[in-house]
Computed example of a mutant assay.
Amino acid sequence: MIKYEIPEMLKDHEDLIKRTLRYSNEISFKREETNPGESKLGGCPYLKNIKDYPMDEAGEPMLFIAQINLADLENLDELPEKGLLQFYVVNEEMFGLESPVLVKYIEDFEENEEPLIRTNPYENEEYKMNLPYSHSGKMYFKTREMPMSSSLDLFHETFKNELSEVEYEKLSEDCYSCDSRIGGYPYFVQNDYIGFDESDFLLLQLDIEDECGIMFGDAGNCVFSIPKDALKNKDFSKVVYDWQCC
Rank of each mutant, 00 (worst) to 15 (best):
I6W: 04
D77N: 14
L171P: 02
E5Y: 14
G183I: 02
F155T: 04
E38Q: 05
T34R: 01
Y133K: 12
E157Y: 13
P115M: 07
L79R: 10
D207Y: 11
Y122M: 03
D197F: 04
E78I: 08
M129D: 04
M146L: 15
K228V: 02
Y140H: 08
S150Q: 01
V90W: 15
Y187N: 06
D235T: 00
L206F: 09
N130L: 05
L79M: 13
Y105T: 11
G83R: 09
Y241G: 06
F87P: 09
C245V: 02
E93F: 15
Y133E: 12
F224N: 00
L10R: 02
K232Y: 02
D218L: 09
L47W: 05
F95Q: 10
N69G: 06
N124F: 05
Y88V: 12
M146C: 15
L16I: 15
K142W: 08
E145H: 09
P147C: 05
F155D: 07
E26A: 09
M148T: 14
L47G: 02
Y168D: 05
S134W: 07
R118M: 13
L131D: 03
F216K: 02
Q244H: 01
Y88N: 10
P186H: 00
P100A: 09
T119R: 10
E211L: 10
D52Y: 07
D108F: 04
G37Y: 01
S150M: 01
D242I: 15
H13R: 08
P61M: 14
N49W: 00
C245P: 01
D192W: 06
N233C: 10
S180R: 00
S39R: 05
K18F: 03
P186R: 01
S28T: 15
L41K: 01
L206R: 10
E162F: 01
I117G: 10
I208K: 15
E107D: 11
Q244T: 00
E123A: 06
N91K: 10
F201V: 05
I6G: 05
D12C: 06
C245G: 03
S24L: 06
N221T: 11
T158R: 08
G183W: 01
D192A: 04
E125T: 09
P100Q: 13
N75V: 13
D174V: 07
P115K: 02
K51L: 13
M129V: 06
I6Q: 03
R181H: 05
A58D: 15
I182P: 03
D108M: 04
S225V: 02
L163K: 07
E145Y: 07
K138H: 09
K30E: 15
G43Q: 03
Y122P: 02
K128L: 13
G42W: 06
C222W: 04
E32D: 12
G42L: 08
V240I: 15
E110F: 00
E125N: 07
P186E: 00
M94S: 11
L171A: 04
I182N: 03
A66Q: 04
Y88M: 13
W243S: 09
S150L: 00
A230F: 02
V103D: 14
E98D: 13
Y4K: 07
L231T: 01
E14P: 02
K104W: 14
G42I: 07
P7C: 07
E111I: 00
K128E: 14
M215L: 10
G220H: 10
Y23I: 15
N69C: 12
N120G: 03
S177L: 13
T143F: 00
E198F: 13
I226L: 11
E78G: 06
V101G: 13
V239F: 03
